[in-house]
Design a protein around this nucleic acid. Structure first.
Lengths: 242, 242
DNA sequence: CGGACTGTTGATTCGAATCAAAACCGGTGG
DNA sequence: CCACCGGTTTTGATTCGAATCAACAGTCCG
């Protein structure tokens, strides 16, 4: 099972990075402590000083901040193979929460070990750095999304992004994918009220752009959805040469 | 003058990182090509593949994206000592624009040279990585700001952030600092119309929180402004131990 | 002096929040 | 197997913050 955990990481890294055989072996040699969490559990909380990073092997996770009046703003949605708190390697205090959305299989890797790997394999270090930079790029697009796009294209953009990212790791079948978020979760992602999320989803359905059945999304017309969202996948840097 | 350019970088890096004498010497030995730009000039454009990074030695710069309908969303405001396009070291295609706001003194450093420095001085590499992670953290807070805070606290938060960051590099005198943005620029930062920015600034003045005189901001009551903005500087990671 | 930004003001519109209440599950236990 | 419960989803009515539209005043600069 330990091998499986590292495997999801390798799959994800290989999407955006050139890894050679030695890199892969070095990653597979990592000591990964498996931990299974239920839905809606905190992995690391704002203000903590973790000494390990968390590899998300299965399930979905959120990074989020909570404002003084109790509103939650989701900052990013994480999918299998990602290390959502990789930044903790160099930023000692967590400035946000990391929590599961669905039941998750997690793998914890000590900072010490990751630092050693980075020293010994500069190519892997570069790949990790690049992953954090892609993260950053996704945040930038997220800013544009919440600051500028009206509710309908805003939601369309999120769906287009999740579809593209899930497809890169093989978690879609022809426009369909599971995205087990409640409408309230979508609201927290997009800065919209639950009521409005509901109306926006109805609109997307009435336009025959998507269907949703119990967290199973089906994008009926990828091109039109992307057009509506003005979605351009460049910012995801899915190709190592981009 | 070349020395001066690297010096601004060292000053800035030293705020958030532990650098030893050899690190400093190595950075000072970098070949930096100076270039002076006027206000509102593009440094690197969306879609380009730069082969150098740009050190901002003097002046203010914006990173921004432009939406299909021509609206500009500013993603970050950059101040002297920063390398706003450091991510281009690992993300080959620019996914946004980088442009001057005021006249700027820039120093260009070839990617090749930075990569060599990173290989030879892992501690400097870690500092650069950390700088990009702080960037990321600032984006996260920016998301919360534009997605959740009403216009007045939103503006207050931006002012509190700029005050804190400028203070760290010695560019404030007791609550006062130059921030040469037009109200239209503020609108592009905050996702607000120019008209509303104007009204928000009036409100902050009427509350005796700030005064503004020709781009010279004076924060009259730092505590109250931060309270209003629910500003907590942790996310800036200004201390190397945070 | 004139022109072009930049800042200011007022009137109106509009998108999304809020409030309130139903309807719709999926699971639990009697 | 059905009644019930909590969490979701849906619907409708109303309010509110910020955009938009339209002028107008300042200020800088050639």
């Amino acid at each position: 099972m330990l091998q499986n955990l590292a495997t999801s990481l390798i799959t994800k890294l290989a999407v955006s990075n050139h890894l050679d055989g030695d890199d892969v072996r070095a990653i597979q040699a990592l000591q990964v402590r498996q931990r299974n969490l239920g839905p809606r559990e905190t992995i690391v909380a704002d203000g903590e000083r973790p000494d390990a990073c968390c590899l998300l092997a299965e399930g979905f996770a959120f990074r989020s901040k909570t404002t003084a009046n109790g509103e939650r703003q989701v900052l990013s949605v994480h999918i299998p193979g990602e290390i959502p708190d990789l930044q903790s390697l160099h930023l000692k205090i967590m400035d946000h929460d990391l929590a599961t959305v669905t039941p998750c299989v997690l793998g914890f890797i000590d900072h010490e070990q990751l630092k050693k790997l980075n020293r010994e394999r500069p190519n892997v270090a570069a790949a990790f750095w690049r992953e954090t930079l892609i993260d950053s790029s996704i945040f930038r697009e997220w800013i544009v999304n919440v600051a500028r796009r009206p509710a309908v294209p805003r939601m369309a953009h999120l769906l287009a992004e999740m579809h593209t990212r899930l497809r890169a790791i093989g978690l879609t079948r022809d426009g369909q994918f599971g995205l087990p978020l409640t409408q309230s979760d979508f609201g927290d992602c997009l800065g919209l009220s639950t009521v409005h999320v509901n109306r926006v989803l109805q609109h997307l359905r009435s336009e025959e752009l998507i269907t949703v059945k119990r967290s199973e999304f089906h994008i009926l017309d990828v091109r039109r959805l992307k057009e509506l969202a003005e979605f351009d996948a460049t910012y995801l840097h899915l190709d190592p040469d981009i």
